[in-house]
Amino acid sequence: MKWSEFFTSSVGKKFVMGFTGLFLISFLVIHVGLNACIWANDNGVMFNKAAHFMGSMVVIRIMEVGLLAGIFLHAIQGLVLTAQNYKRRSVGYAVPMGNTGSPWYSRWMGLLGTLILLFLILHWYNFWIPSRFTGVEEVFIDNKPYDNLYGLMLLTFSNWWVVIVYVLGCISLAYHLMQGFHAAFKSLGFHNRKYLVVIRNVGNVFSIVVSGAFAMMPISMKLGWVS
């Protein structure tokens, strides 16, 4: 079986979705952990130092390229698969099945993924592009200059509409993960029922905790819960 045959088959495409999905999930763990430093309530010292550490490590910078590739591969493949699957039924049912047997969010993964992608474009515009390309105002910590990403967060999340868009993005992420977490493992061939129950429960907890933590960041800043 040629590589091209493998990756263009319906199962191969799902393998790519599952693999990139789990890779992106692993990134979320690092991202949420780093961002949680804002709750140290030290005026962003720990957060700015942590962000500087991540930004200055060569390995992390190389992985960042892989991360971007992963995001685009996951997004493009997902959109193509959604479009291809949609075309498999030209005439729909007069009485649709609705939520019988499948939760609504599992059937709307394409839409949820698109909302997350749109959110990411705003997120990159707010933080990633200033951090990597256009520059961020500096702050001195222990007489050393650091990019004041904490200050940028405070400024960005001073607008209610930005906070609302971020919270909506996190809600989309939560539902996307609730289906994507366990489906990714199944797409990679995990079929042991005992472990799949654990994976499903871990996935649900992960989806709520990680997305909830992300959503609380702009809310905390807007409501002045961090200083």
Binding site: S10, K13, Q84, N85, G101, S102, Q179, H182
Partner: peptide
């Protein structure tokens, strides 16, 4: 046929 997205229907 389409691909499986593990919805469970």
């Amino acid at each position: 046929f389409g691909s499986c997205t593990f919805q469970g229907a």
